[in-house]
Computed example of a mutant assay.
Amino acid sequence: MQTETDKPCGKREARKQDRQQAILAIAQRSFLEHGYAGTSMSAIAAELGGSKATLWRYFRSKEALFEAVVDEATSAYRRQVADLLRPSSDVRATVLAFARGFLTKIVSREACQLHRLVAAEAGRSPEVGAIFARVPQRTRQLLADFFTGAMAAGQLRRGDPLAAAQVLTYLCMGLQQRILWGGPDATAAEVEAEAHNATEIFLRAYAPE
């Protein structure tokens, strides 16, 4: 049962979370519009309506704030992937569902904007590239864990699960490369066709011996 002393703490925590979400929303917009180097903690604090000291209570540096923005932008997708990649008797269906979801994510406008930002900034701000590199690493690790089980069950040929995860994700990246180089957005039909193509190539390469 909630006591009177619990209620203020709950309200404070809710206000803190709301404030943090507001910071992340402003920061994401600023990073995408102005780049990493062109975004300042002072400008974010001014738009938020507070001081830099207040902002620093939530994020100790611009690097930490950028990392939080990237994590916020990808956390829901990671949960979906983790839920999808459960042990299954139908590996083909699981691989296809992953490829379809992965493709849909990486060709989205938000993902392409973030990718362009990182590509433009990584040379002069290596920390930006290091932070962004963790996103595909986490996805590949989830996929590798699934492949470990599938290989042990004889559903896929044995090999390095992490290398297999890298193969599948790379097979899915053609449409994104086209968009990043100025090509038209991918259609739903193209995403579906590419997902099937990547799945077929991968399963032929990793068919049980």
Results as ranks from 00 to 15, higher is better:
residue 82 A to T: 05
residue 110 E to V: 13
residue 105 K to G: 06
residue 109 R to C: 13
residue 103 L to M: 09
residue 119 A to H: 13
residue 71 D to Y: 07
residue 98 F to R: 08
residue 103 L to S: 06
residue 155 Q to G: 11
residue 78 R to W: 14
residue 79 R to V: 07
residue 111 A to W: 05
residue 136 P to M: 04
residue 139 T to M: 06
residue 88 S to M: 13
residue 85 L to T: 06
residue 86 R to N: 07
residue 105 K to D: 13
residue 82 A to D: 08
residue 98 F to K: 07
residue 122 A to N: 13
residue 125 S to P: 09
residue 109 R to I: 00
residue 137 Q to V: 11
residue 125 S to G: 00
residue 134 R to S: 00
residue 68 A to T: 07
residue 128 V to F: 05
residue 81 V to K: 02
residue 111 A to S: 12
residue 107 V to C: 08
residue 136 P to N: 05
residue 76 A to Q: 15
residue 71 D to W: 10
residue 75 S to Y: 15
residue 73 A to Y: 02
residue 117 L to D: 05
residue 98 F to D: 02
residue 149 G to A: 02
residue 92 R to A: 09
residue 71 D to S: 10
residue 91 V to P: 00
residue 91 V to W: 10
residue 118 V to S: 02
residue 123 G to I: 00
residue 86 R to H: 08
residue 133 A to F: 03
residue 121 E to Y: 01
residue 146 F to W: 01
residue 150 A to N: 03
residue 141 Q to V: 08
residue 144 A to W: 01
residue 103 L to D: 02
residue 88 S to T: 06
residue 94 T to C: 09
residue 71 D to V: 12
residue 124 R to V: 09
residue 145 D to K: 12
residue 137 Q to N: 08
residue 126 P to R: 03
residue 103 L to H: 06
residue 133 A to Q: 03
residue 81 V to F: 01
residue 140 R to M: 08
residue 81 V to M: 04
residue 92 R to L: 14
residue 139 T to A: 09
residue 147 F to G: 01
residue 85 L to A: 05
residue 152 A to R: 15
residue 112 C to T: 14
residue 140 R to N: 06
residue 150 A to P: 03
residue 142 L to K: 07
residue 151 M to C: 07
residue 147 F to R: 04
residue 76 A to T: 11
residue 151 M to V: 07
residue 79 R to I: 10
residue 120 A to T: 02
residue 127 E to R: 14
residue 119 A to K: 12
residue 131 I to G: 07
residue 112 C to L: 15
residue 145 D to R: 10
residue 88 S to Q: 05
residue 71 D to C: 00
residue 154 G to H: 09
residue 113 Q to M: 14
residue 70 V to M: 08
residue 108 S to D: 00
residue 70 V to E: 03
residue 142 L to E: 07
residue 155 Q to N: 14
residue 89 S to E: 14
residue 98 F to V: 04
residue 125 S to M: 13
residue 71 D to G: 09
residue 129 G to I: 04
residue 104 T to N: 15
residue 115 H to N: 15
residue 116 R to M: 09
residue 125 S to N: 15
